[in-house]
Simulated scan of single mutants.
Amino acid sequence: MAKSEQLFNIILSHEGGWSNHSSDRGGKTNMGITLSTWKSCGYDKDGDGDIDSDDLRLITKDDVFTLFKKYYWDKCKADYIHSQSIANYCCPIKHFCDNKIRADSIFRSQPFVVISLLQYKIK
């Protein structure tokens, strides 16, 4: 079975720490988590009564993993995918599709759907 930790480590290897680049549409970001994502899924880390960039600066790798597991990996039901490679491919694509990027703009054919469905173990 696929392991969430493996994909998480790949993602984290491409994400840095704190950034707030004007050319990045995500704005304030820490370890790949944008402020808007932290506001919708995170919590008030510094206890000052609001969720803001100060909280985003305080997030840990464990916080990021918890978010990744709950809102990306588990939504894909990736624990049921036998192949790690397929899980590594499906989870990010599911995220893009959930964010209203049409799957057919990424894939011009449908073998992906068949392959990923074949990987699920029906319980």
Rank of each mutant, 00 (worst) to 15 (best):
residue 107 F to R: 14
residue 29 T to P: 03
residue 36 S to I: 09
residue 117 L to S: 13
residue 27 G to K: 02
residue 53 S to I: 02
residue 36 S to H: 14
residue 120 Y to D: 03
residue 14 H to R: 13
residue 18 W to Q: 02
residue 48 D to M: 02
residue 123 K to D: 15
residue 1 M to H: 10
residue 13 S to I: 05
residue 23 S to D: 14
residue 4 S to I: 01
residue 89 Y to F: 13
residue 87 A to N: 03
residue 102 R to G: 13
residue 14 H to T: 05
residue 106 I to A: 01
residue 85 S to W: 08
residue 79 D to G: 08
residue 101 I to G: 07
residue 45 K to E: 06
residue 11 I to R: 05
residue 69 K to E: 13
residue 120 Y to P: 05
residue 86 I to K: 06
residue 29 T to Q: 04
residue 91 C to A: 12
residue 12 L to M: 12
residue 59 I to M: 01
residue 29 T to W: 03
residue 97 C to M: 06
residue 84 Q to T: 04
residue 119 Q to G: 11
residue 117 L to I: 10
residue 82 H to A: 14
residue 60 T to I: 05
residue 115 I to E: 12
residue 62 D to I: 04
residue 53 S to Q: 12
residue 19 S to D: 01
residue 109 S to C: 07
residue 35 L to E: 05
residue 13 S to F: 10
residue 42 G to K: 06
residue 109 S to K: 15
residue 117 L to V: 06
residue 44 D to F: 10
residue 87 A to K: 08
residue 51 I to H: 02
residue 13 S to L: 00
residue 100 K to H: 15
residue 34 T to D: 11
residue 42 G to Y: 08
residue 85 S to Q: 15
residue 98 D to A: 14
residue 8 F to S: 04
residue 69 K to H: 13
residue 7 L to T: 06
residue 90 C to N: 15
residue 68 F to R: 04
residue 91 C to V: 15
residue 86 I to T: 10
residue 77 K to T: 02
residue 17 G to P: 01
residue 115 I to G: 02
residue 28 K to E: 14
residue 100 K to T: 14
residue 93 I to M: 14
residue 81 I to G: 02
residue 85 S to D: 14
residue 81 I to F: 12
residue 93 I to A: 05
residue 40 S to P: 00
residue 92 P to E: 04
residue 54 D to Y: 04
residue 12 L to H: 10
residue 75 K to E: 09
residue 111 P to M: 01
residue 99 N to L: 14
residue 57 R to H: 08
residue 32 G to S: 07
residue 57 R to W: 01
residue 78 A to D: 02
residue 60 T to P: 06
residue 84 Q to P: 01
residue 94 K to A: 06
residue 59 I to T: 03
residue 77 K to G: 12
residue 78 A to W: 01
residue 77 K to I: 00
residue 122 I to Q: 05
residue 73 W to N: 03
residue 11 I to F: 08
residue 71 Y to N: 11
residue 71 Y to Q: 12
residue 32 G to D: 04
residue 101 I to E: 09
residue 94 K to T: 07
residue 14 H to S: 05
residue 45 K to C: 09
residue 1 M to K: 12
residue 46 D to I: 03
residue 46 D to L: 11
residue 76 C to T: 10
residue 3 K to R: 13
residue 16 G to N: 03
residue 7 L to N: 01
residue 32 G to E: 06
residue 74 D to K: 04
residue 36 S to W: 10
residue 29 T to R: 08
residue 121 K to D: 12
residue 16 G to D: 01
residue 123 K to H: 05
residue 113 V to D: 13
residue 1 M to V: 10
residue 108 R to S: 15
residue 12 L to I: 13
